[in-house]
Amino acid sequence: MTLHPLAFMILKRLALGLVTLLAISLFIFLAIELLPGDIAEEVLGQSATPETVAAFRRELGLDQPAITRYLAWLTDVLHGDFGTSLASGREISELLAGRFANTLFLALYAAAISVPLAIGLGLLAALYRGSWFDRTVNIATLSSISFPEYFVAYILLLFFSVKWGLFPSIADFGSDASLGTMLYRTFLPALTLVLVVTAHMMRMTRAAIINLLAQPYIEMARLKGASPARVILRHALPNALAPIINVVALNLAYLVTGVVIVEVVFVYPGLGQLMVDSVAKRDIPVVQACCLIFAGIYILLNLSADVLAIATNPRLMHRK
C-alpha cells in the first residue's frame, strides 16, 4: 500500500483532466451557437428558400434543443463518430484516421531528435554559465524562438531543397512507404520543428538547472568536498528531473500546435493542414473534431507532465 497516495493523486488528476476535456467539448460545441443564424443558413447561403433551410435543419437535427444535440454529439464522439463533413459529405472519422497518424509521426520524429539535444545543450549551457558557449547559445536560441515557424521552414526549404537539392520540398510520402523513405521525405518539416522546439526547451532546461545549482544544499555538497561529478549526478540530477520532465512535456504540447504551420508549408497530409483547409471552407464539424483532438492531446501531455513531476518529487504531493 506504499503506492497508495501516488495512485490516488494520479486518479485525482485524471478526473480533473476529464472534467476539463468535458468542459472544452461543451465549449467547442456551444461556440457554434454563437453564430448569427445557424449552420444551415451558413451552408445554404442567402438564396435558399425557407423550406430548404428547414429541411436541412431537420436533417442536421438543428430543430432539437441545444442540450439534446450536445448529448447526442458527445455520445457519437465517444463512439468515434464525428459526423460528416459539410464540404465533402464524407465521414469525418475516415478523414481523420490517416492524417492523425501522420501528424503523430511527424511530432514524434521531431521529439526524438529535439529532446536529447535540448537537454544536453541546456545542461552544458547551465554548467558553463557566462562562458562564450553559453552566450552564443543564448543569442542563437533567443533568435530562433523569435522567428516565425514558416520563416525557418522556408529558409530550410530554400537551401536544402531548392539550392542543394538534398531533400524533397513536398513531404507527402503516399500510403505505403518504407520507414526510411518516410524519414527521408519528412526530414525538412521535422528539422523545422526541431529548431523551433529545441530553442524553447533548451532555454527552459538551462533556467531550471541554474535555479537548482543556486540551492544551499548544492553549495553544501561542494563545500564538504564532493567531486563535481558527484555533485551533479547525486545531488543535482534527482532534483532536476521534475523541472526537466515539465519542460519536455510543455514543449511536446507545443509541438502539437506547431505542426499546423509546418504541415501547410511542406504540404504534409496531417491533421493541421486538414484543420486549416476546413477553417477556410468553414467546414465547422471538421474544425470541431480537429480542435477536440488537439485539445485532448494537449491536456493529456500536460496531465502526464504533472503526474511525472510529482512522481519524481514527492514533496509536491503534500502541497497545500
Binding site: T20, A23, I24, F27, I28, A31, I32, L34, L35, A253, V256, T257, V260, M275, V276, S278, V279, R282, D283, I284, V287, Q288, C290, C291, F294, A295, Y298, I299, N302
Partner: peptide, 21 residues
C-alpha cells in the same frame, strides 16, 4: 481562464475564426 489555457492557442483561434469569419 484555466479552461481557456487548456486549449492550445492557435487551435482555439482557428475554431473561433471558422465560426466568426
Amino acid at each position: 481562464v484555466d479552461l481557456m489555457i487548456a486549449i492550445p492557442g492557435l487551435v482555439f483561434a482557428l475554431l473561433l475564426l471558422s465560426i466568426f469569419g
